[in-house]
Design a protein around this nucleic acid. Sequence first.
DNA 1: GCGTTGATATTCATATTTGAATTGCCATAT
DNA 2: ATATGGCAATTCAAATATGAATATCAACGC
Lengths: 304, 304
Amino acid sequence: MLDWEDLKYFLAMAEHGSLSAAARKLNVSQPTLSRRLTALEENIGAELFARTRAGLEMTLLGEQMRHHARHMQDDVHAIERLVTGHDSSLSGSVMISCIEAIGAIWLVEQLGPFIEQYPGITVDVKVDNAVSDLLRREADIALRMFRPVQNDLVARRTVTMNYGYYASRSYLEARGVPDALKDLKEHNFILPHDEILTHTKTDPRKVYSLARSATFRSNSMMALATAVESGFGIGAYSCVMAKDKPDLVRLFDDLVVFSTDIWLVSHAELRRSARIRAMYDFLGDMLMEQSEAFAGRFHAAAAE
Amino acid sequence: MLDWEDLKYFLAMAEHGSLSAAARKLNVSQPTLSRRLTALEENIGAELFARTRAGLEMTLLGEQMRHHARHMQDDVHAIERLVTGHDSSLSGSVMISCIEAIGAIWLVEQLGPFIEQYPGITVDVKVDNAVSDLLRREADIALRMFRPVQNDLVARRTVTMNYGYYASRSYLEARGVPDALKDLKEHNFILPHDEILTHTKTDPRKVYSLARSATFRSNSMMALATAVESGFGIGAYSCVMAKDKPDLVRLFDDLVVFSTDIWLVSHAELRRSARIRAMYDFLGDMLMEQSEAFAGRFHAAAAE
DNA sequence: GCGTTGATATTCATATTTGAATTGCCATAT
DNA sequence: ATATGGCAATTCAAATATGAATATCAACGC
C-alpha cells in the first residue's frame, strides 16, 4: 500500500527539480527526502528519478505519476479551504495578496484599525507581482487589477485607481511648470515598462507618446514613484499615494493618465471563515470610503 | 501543511466507521490511528469525528472532507495502475477474482502449468461472489459472467459454460433413470436460488418449473454440486466440472439447462504489465482450449 | 444480573525516522 | 589549475512514532 505522504514528497521533488530545493520547501532535511524517495521507488519497484549532480531528472513513469499527485494536491487544497471556511474564530492568520503599488504602503497603512480591532488575527500581506492562486491557498484574499476568471471565486469591484502626472516641487522650480501637454517634449520623463500596464483602462501609450524620451524607466511602480519624488522628472503617480505627499504637484488640470479598477477577491469557501470575512469586509469598506482619494478628487475637494 | 498520510488514515476511518476496523484494514494498530486522528484534528483545528462507544461519528466537516479524500484515493489507485503497468518483470503477484463456481476448483487445477512456468509470480485467487472492482485494484484480472460496464477495462468473451442435468449413479440406481423431462415430477430436485442465475442465457425457470419441488436448495454452486454428487437428487451441474466425475451421469440427451458466458477482464493499463499480461493470455488460451468441455460436448467426443 | 463483545484511551518499552554534520562528486568561474 | 557552489549520499545520535498489553466503558445476550 502506497504511503500518501511519500506522494506529497514526490510531487515536491518533481516540481522543484532537486532534493535540496524540495526539502527547503517542505521544511524537512535533504537526507530525509533522499531516503523517502528511495523507499517509494522500492515500494513501487520502479525508478522515478535519475539522480544527477545537477538534481533530479524524471523518468517517464515519474512524469505520469506527477499528474496524479498534482491532482491529489488540488484535493488537499480543497480540504484546507473547507477547514478554513469552518473556522468561526477570530484568530489565526489572513493572507492578502496584492501588487506592490498598493500593498507596500497604502494597504499597510490602512490596516491599523483592523489590527487594533482584531488582536488575535495575524495579518500577512504578500506583495506579489505574480498572481497568487487563491484556489491553491496561496492567499486568502487578493487585491487585483482585473476580474478573476477562475471559478469558485467571489469578486467585487471596488474603487477606480487613477494615475495623474506629478512632479516634485524641486524639479518644477528648476525646469519650469509645463502648461499643456505639448510642453512635455521639453521635460524629463519617467516611464513604466509596458508589462505593468496590462490592466489599465486608458491606453497610456497615447499619452506617453508625447514624451520625448525617458529619463528613467522601471517595472516597479515603487521605483517610479521614488523617481518622481526625487525630482528626476515628470511621471505618472497614483493619486491616492500622492495625497500625503505635499512635495508633489499634479499637472495638467488633474488629467488622468490611466486608471485601473481594484477588485477585491476571495474564495467562496474561505469567506465562510469569520476572520477572512472580517478582513474582506474591512477592506471593502476601506476602499469604498476612499474612492474619492483613489480617483484623485481630493484636490478639488480641498480647493473648494 | 497537512500530512497526506493522515488523510489516508482519515478516509479509512470514515469508510469503516471505527478506529479498530480502519486499523485492521490499514495494518496498523488502533492506538496509532487514535493518535494520528488526534494529530490531524489538532492540525486543522477542528473535530472530524465524535468518539462514541460504538465507534466514530462524523462531523459535518468530516463529511465534506471525506469526498476530497476519496478523490485522492482514486488518484492513488491510478498511480498504482500506472506502476503495475510499467512493471515489465515477471515477478510479483497477480490477483484473479472469480466466482466460487469456477474459482474454487476448476481455476486452481488449471493453474499448475502457469505456476511451473513463472516461478517468480505469486498467483492469488480471490473467490468472490461480489464483483471486485478492477479500477480500484481489488484484483488484476477477473472472470465474470457478463460484459463489464466500467470504462477502461479490457474484456474478452471466452467460452460458454453449459449446465446439464446430472445425478449420481447411486441415486439413479435407487430411483431409476428418468427417460424424459416429464418424468422429473417423480424425482428429488436440487435447485439454485434465483439470485445466482442472474447472468444465465437461458431462462432456467422454464425448465425448473417441471420439477415437483426441491429436495435441496442453496445459493452456493459448490453446495449444489456437492448435493448432486452426494445423491440427493437431480440437479444442474456444470459440464466442465462433471468431466472428471465418473460417478455423475448426464440426463436427457445432454440437454442444456442453462448457460453463461465467461468473460476475461482486466484493466487496460494492467495489461501492460508483463506478469498480468502473461496470466491474461494464459487464462484466455486455457479457456479456449477447453471450450468443448465447458460446452459439455466431451461426452459426445468420447462416445465417437 | 452477569459475562461477553467490541469500542476508545493509556502506558511503556522498542523500533523507526529524522536532522546535523560530513563526505564526495561534478560543473563552472576565477 | 584551483576555488566555489550546488547537489546527493552517508553516518550517527536524538527525537519520534509505533505496537503489545492493559484499562475502561457501554451495549447486548442469556
